[in-house]
Design a protein around this nucleic acid. Structure first.
Lengths: 344, 344
DNA sequence: TTGTATGCGTTATCAC
DNA sequence: GTGATAACGCATACAA
């Protein structure tokens, strides 16, 4: 009952004493060893429950060199896509006995490095980087050096970014194909002047751009630079930006995020243009915003749950020394959710 | 350079050996003690950097009984409000040298208890519960017993829920006043049949209801039961629900969440009613949905950032043994963000 | 200013 | 089946 420790917490010695056994035996029943007589197991277990003994995770960690935690880094959790990803990751990980320590790194290179180092210093069992921002723009391979460096310590899993290296694993959505299909569909519905609105030059944004351009080329529509615009991922910013260009003419918008697409919707409303009559609009990520807007937004669902599930599944395999069985790179398909801002 | 440890990681003994000092000295420079000669400090530091030595957090934790982590529990991170809260909490905590271990508990009592126990077993320094769901409905005091139980181990901070007890601290928004003001404004703009749409019976939902009813009573408008409706926090659900009631007449909606309010907007659109002409609508939480909708939604901003900042500030004080200085209960005001779904 | 020795609470390897 | 005891890597009280 009473505990006389420094921290006032019951420890293995207390239990051992009360049960008249050695700490080794207590440890055995705690860890479910079968080399304990049913009799003593019962007695010890009883006392453990009664006194609410919980093994000290630090001591355990010290000995086993793991606390069964995985680090998750996102640029910001205050983003629907990231939040959903973290939700699923936490869910799948905790179902498998792993806890999450979360870090928000921001979008700057320094912040990312610092956050990764911090997480590493916590002796995590694996690291998950969520978001294509961690893959860099793809222009400079050294942008992702810090990831390979981290991978020397623990397996690293990148979600939605294609990073290669020893002990680093990637799971990406097929953004190129998705954007190709969206753009093609828009073209087939009769549009020719299609804007591409993006908020970054990340790996995934670049893939989307590729899909967009491929669709145009296939339809023999010239790719015009003034129709590719980089904007802030903020509804009113996009609207105002678009309103600014008086003599820019376009009849469709494909965006790399729903918020951007909604911005285009606001632009149309401000100009008195009908959607999808005058301009058709497609978003990306299939967030709740796609349903909140009016008209409701056609958007690409990139299967966050699937991506997260695959990632955790592979992560567990790697941790359990089955690394040879897991592919360093997995791609999952997206699908288009048709709503009312397009007429295909 | 080389390390010969079990885990292949450089430890304090390696550094000590290479620097020709004792581990005590290494420990001193690592922890910035001033009882080290400038000379040895430099030499040791050099080796530490060169070999990339990072103190083992488990060993440190074992001795100090802390790993400088705080547990954060949310019902689900896949909710704009929670996501933003966690964003700020993580930000403020990490700025102060604390890491977050995140757990999603769901909304069921069992899940909450389990999550709290799990976090507790990780020897966190403090626990933060985000969301009024943790405060129970207020009807049964024992709903929150597990929180007071947890508080016997670590200080517990509840965000947006009023829980009292030894070592438990609460920070709530003044939801009652906010909803009172919204409702009053709606009344002043000429409405009399005002619906109250809520998705839960949580502490904060109840406070909002109080505000709503207070405003009605003050204006001598009878509180009618059929105008208070409990719905799922899902846009289309709310729309369809409202469409169902053929002979329900109302000229305004105040909602406990933006998604619910947007559902009312969808209802109005479906019925061909003008907003705010025929019905005026007010949401809550001032999420991005409030801007995505059309018309854009008047909503209550409940100052998440402020709430989180206050919470972390008080948390740090409690951890630093200045508990007497911190109030067990803090209330922060909300403010109404007027947009285009109301005409006040 | 520096070093020695001990404790932190486990798990695991031996003996018995 | 059970019990000593040695790691695990650090911080720190105490000596020097």
């Amino acid at each position: 009952m009473a505990s006389y420790n420094k921290n006032g917490q019951v420890n293995i010695y207390d239990i051992a004493q009360m049960a008249n056994v050695s700490i080794a035996t207590v440890s055995r029943v705690v860890n479910g060893s079968d080399k304990v007589s049913e009799n003593t197991r019962k007695r010890v277990l009883e006392i453990i429950v009664k006194d609410g003994f919980t093994p000290n995770v630090f001591a355990r960690g010290l000995g086993l060199n793991t606390m069964h935690t995985v680090g998750i880094t996102v640029p910001t959790i205050s983003d629907m896509y990231m939040a959903r990803a973290v939700y699923y990751l936490e869910k799948f990980l905790s179902e498998n006995g792993y806890n999450c320590i979360l870090g928000c790194s921001g979008f700057e290179q320094d912040g990312k490095k610092a956050q990764v180092d911090l997480l590493l210093s916590k002796r995590i069992d694996a690291l998950i980087l969520v978001g294509s921002t961690y893959a860099g723009s793809g222009e400079n391979i050294h942008d992702t050096d810090y990831i390979r460096e981290a991978a020397k310590n623990v397996p690293v899993f990148v979600i939605n970014g294609d990073v290669t290296g020893e002990n680093v694993y990637a799971c990406v959505c097929d953004d190129k194909t998705a954007m190709y299909e969206v753009t093609s569909a828009v073209i087939k519905s009769g549009r020719k002047k299609i804007m591409f609105l993006s908020d970054s030059h990340s790996y995934s944004a670049n893939k989307k751009l590729e899909g967009y351009e491929t669709a145009l080329k296939e339809a023999k529509i010239p790719v015009r630079g003034e129709l590719k615009m980089y904007v802030q991922n903020e509804i009113h910013y996009v609207r105002d930006m678009l309103l600014q260009y008086k003599n820019l003419s376009f009849d469709a918008v494909v965006a790399t995020d729903d918020a951007i697409a909604v911005g285009a919707l606001k632009y149309a409303a401000a100009k008195g243009l009908s959607v999808p009559g005058d301009i058709s609009v497609a978003g990306y990520n299939n967030s709740s915003m796609a349903i909140a807007s009016e008209p409701e937004l056609t958007s690409v669902d990139n299967h966050v749950e699937q991506v997260c599930f695959d990632t955790v599944e592979r992560l567990l395999k790697v941790i359990h020394d089955e690394a040879k069985e897991v592919k360093p790179r997995v791609m999952v398909p997206c699908h288009i959710v048709k709503r009312n801002t397009t007429d295909f």
